[in-house]
Amino acid sequence: MPNLKNFKYNRARHFRMMDRNLCANLIRHEYIITGRAKAKRAQAKIEQFLGKALHQNKSLGNSPLEERLSNVKALEFLQLPDRQEVGSKVLDDLSKRFVDRAHGFTRIIKLERRLGDDKAEMSVLELVDSDFEIKFWYTAKIVARLELQGLPVDELTQHNVTKLTQLRINGEERFRQAVEEAKEVFFAEDVRKIKQLAEAGEPASLEQMDESVDLAAIQDDWPQHLRQKTPKGTYLKNRPSELFLKLAKNFGKSKQYPTIPRPAKVEAVIPKSPFLK
């Protein structure tokens, strides 16, 4: 991974502009896919910018948007052509989204290396608590899969779910909707089969899910761009191992310092003073 912290003086402006462009485009598109080094460098700057801008916005109160746009000094970080469009999204939209946050507005997700000549390390840089958050949909997919398999949600997933929903507006409700949507989108084939079996009056078992699907027959009249190489879902037979399910209960605890929960407090009873009459 190239080091983007030490650079020659004559490239300082280029690096500064890179941060600003990435910042503007991240706010515009909610998530961007870049190289690891660029993402890591830009993340710090974006956090700084968003923290300052939202703090200054809060201090201005309920004044109209145009006034705030000119008075919030942190917006000068953005380039002039982006300032109106992106700045208004920050002050109008993001300020409502990040009410209880002072930092931690962004997340980096590690991706596999790029399939090019350079084999660059790639990553996703995304805004948290948005509708287009990749981790949110990934977790929703996990929960949807577990529900279709009839398995309990393990501790690690539950930890992720609480983290994703606690500061989101209507977090739990939105997550529930996402799970239902994920079932239809990502496990379409399985849901279809379960419905078929239900109509026939047979109980749906996971063994039946793994029958190979004749995609060509299903997708015969589909448009070209919607056709899939592999069927969506249909790997429900592959469950987590029993050892995993057993260990999953302790995922929240520290391995290094296994703590025993403190026993309930017993109220001390002070004996009566013998000097009292």
Binding site: K110, Y138, F186
Partner: peptide, 15 residues
């Protein structure tokens, strides 16, 4: 194992 699709995945990386 990827928890969302049951395929092989590198740990700490997105599937």
């Amino acid at each position: 194992r990827c928890a969302a699709c049951g395929r092989v995945k590198r740990s700490h990386f997105m599937c």
